[in-house]
């Protein structure tokens, strides 16, 4: 009886030597390659290749429908004397610095407020994020209407309160237009900064504050020596993203001013669209976008060091 069972068991499956195929199927490099294929196809065809092509186009005089000839740095030389381009660089830097700085200040403040003990905290947090999830173009249209030269609700309210006598020409005047688009950008960016910083704040243990208070720290000192150092890594990353997306912004400007009045609100992105797609000189447009790359690299470096610092602070191995 027993040996019958044993025998049938032994008969069942002779142990095979693993074939080359079996070895291949458990080889992590081989499997990894195939797992990466779909993502790699997209990223190479539609990201890496166009990125290289863009740099190449910036050295040519390509137009829409005509592949260009290599003309060296001519596009860049031409741009360096182009006052519209120089204005757009100035605008981009102004837009990025002012908007990012205010987004950071207001975002951090809002995060600190939301971190307090509050009724309906979850709902509040959800509501705060709404400007971020509504498509930028659609909220930009709302702002366009709010900034209307004749029927602006802001002008009307200020006039009723007696602060002004004339309607404010929000988008028709050079500096008004700049501040108006910057405000719209801040409005959209604050929720992102606030909610991500809030997530960082929630990991700070309250006992640290209690200990500091017992030691006689003022509220400012508690912020400066506890909150801020513990938040630094996440601030670095959040602000890198914020700067990056502000710097390359296109939608808000395009919807609200199209770069006007008299090119005063053109950012580099909107100018490159106008030159490359509307006017058809791809080469020149590509040169403008390529000129943005050094700035982006700067932002990426900051982010990189922010991440490194975080690892170093937590004392974790790189896994």
């Amino acid at each position: 009886m027993t040996d019958v069972v044993l025998k049938s068991r032994l008969d069942k499956r002779p142990i095979q030597e693993p074939t080359a195929w079996d070895r291949l199927m458990v080889n992590r490099n081989w499997l990894g390659l195939w797992f990466m294929v779909p993502a790699a196809i997209f990223l190479i065809l539609f990201l890496a290749y166009p990125l290289g092509l863009g740099v190449w186009l910036s050295f040519t005089d390509a137009k829409i429908g005509r592949s260009g000839e290599f003309i060296g740095l001519e596009n860049y030389e031409w741009l360096s004397e182009d006052s519209t381009f120089i204005t757009s660089v100035f605008n981009t830097i102004l837009y990025t610095t002012v908007a990012s700085a205010i987004k950071f200040a207001v975002g951090l403040y809002l995060a600190l407020l939301l971190n307090e003990r509050l009724p309906f905290k979850a709902i509040l947090r959800a509501v705060v994020l709404i400007p971020f999830i509504v498509p930028t173009v659609l909220s930009a249209i709302a702002f366009w209407w709010i900034y209307d030269p004749q029927f602006s609700i802001i002008s009307w309210s200020l006039r009723k309160m007696g602060f002004i006598t004339e309607n404010i020409n929000f988008l028709g005047d050079v500096w008004n237009a700049r501040w108006s688009v910057i405000f719209a950008n801040i409005w959209r960016g604050v929720p992102f900064v606030a909610i991500t910083l809030l997530a960082g704040l929630q990991t700070v243990s309250p006992s640290l504050y209690e200990a500091a208070t017992i030691d006689g720290a003022t509220p400012w000192q508690r912020f400066r020596f506890i909150t801020y150092p513990l938040l630094t890594p996440i601030i670095a990353v959040v602000m890198t993203f914020s700067v990056l997306f502000t710097f390359t912004d296109f939608q808000l400007i395009w919807v609200m001013t199209r770069g006007g009045p008299v090119n005063a609100t053109h950012l580099m992105a909107t100018l490159s669209y106008q030159r490359a797609i509307l006017a058809g000189s791809l080469g020149e447009g590509a040169a403008i976008s390529t000129a943005m790359i050094p700035f982006l690299l700067g932002a990426i470096l900051v982010s990189w060091f922010g991440l490194q610092r975080r690892k170093w602070q937590q004392g974790e191995s790189n896994d």
Partner: peptide, 24 residues
């Protein structure tokens, strides 16, 4: 390294890609 490259790809904004992408 691939993980790092993907993070970098995340940082490439559409507004510097759309011109060459339109030809592609």
């Amino acid at each position: 390294w691939v993980g790092g490259a993907i993070f970098l790809a995340y940082l490439v904004p559409p507004s510097i890609l759309f011109i060459p992408l339109s030809t592609v």
